[in-house]
Amino acid sequence: MREQTSGRPVLLQAEDVCKWFPVKGWFFQEKRYVQAVNHVSFRLYQGETLGLVGESGCGKTTLARTVLRLIEPTSGAITFDGKDLMAQNKQQLRALRKDMQIVFQDPYSSLHPRMTVRQIIEEPMRIRGLYTGPGQREKRVKELLGMVGLNETHMNRYPHEFSGGQRQRIVIARALATEPKLIICDEPVSALDVSVRAQILNLLRELQEKLGLTYLFISHDLSVVEYLCDRVAIMYLGQMVELGDTEAIFNRPLHPYTKALLSAAPEVGNFGRRDRILLEGDIPSPANPPSGCRFRTRCPHAAECCTETPVWTQAEEGHYVMCHRFQELDGVN
């Protein structure tokens, strides 16, 4: 079942997106795939922040890169700002990249070590041929540096002269250079000190208010997601298992995996103060996922019906879940 349109303008829509990476086997072996992202659909509304949460290796980053076509999806449809991304050729896609940017997790490796800050921030303008008038790029660089809380004196320095937080500000300034509509934040604060984290989060929030940005915010830190996001999507083993408003997810989680995840986070929402739900075993290999519900091998409530593949169901307005038993388990830990 697809998400209902709630009247708000949709910026990015992913439908049934899959990304399977082929695994090399022996000569006679059947060709196998790592199902990094498996049949994921979601909508991103203009001006909102959608959080993407899940443990390491669940396909969050792959999904983010796939919806930008930085990685080619195996199948599925992606619509960005009314345009079918899958139908764009290489050149058209490059032109569209002006409107969608990505901020990576590691601010140390995502800046070119041999370019000055000014060159780094000018680069997207150069690539897209924007701000061509005399002195306009320099003006724009200064403006951007101001926006992210740095100043002109930083312009001619190299990235290695900055701290992690400052570097992430440079990355954000670069992402903003072409006035994008969508910014995908791939764990932008998880490599930073806790003290700097809040500053960067506040900066992201301010910029969103000022520039009307839309964020897809990937994180495994629930407190960060609760602070920043309007809606949250939970991923497990390449699939989206629950999606809803932040408040709904944190106060009334429906999927057993979401409940376990929230219980593991100290004091988040009302749910976190309850008893910790301990999941047994490790996350199964995405090359050989369990049949039926993918979570059933670790789910404390797994039953006979869970061998069937569950469907994406709307539990309440704007709150979706992929579980056979969510109604029976409502309110149960």
């Binding site: 930085l70 940017q101 041999r114 680069e123 690539i127 990355v171």
Partner: peptide, 26 residues
């Protein structure tokens, strides 16, 4: 595979630009 090359792709840089400006100097 490094992120600064991927960010260049995300900016819409051409392959030639990535090769000579982002990879070769390193």
């Amino acid at each position: 595979e490094s992120e600064h090359v991927e960010s260049a792709r995300a900016m819409g840089a051409t392959d030639l630009r990535i090769m000579f400006k982002y990879i070769l100097p390193l």
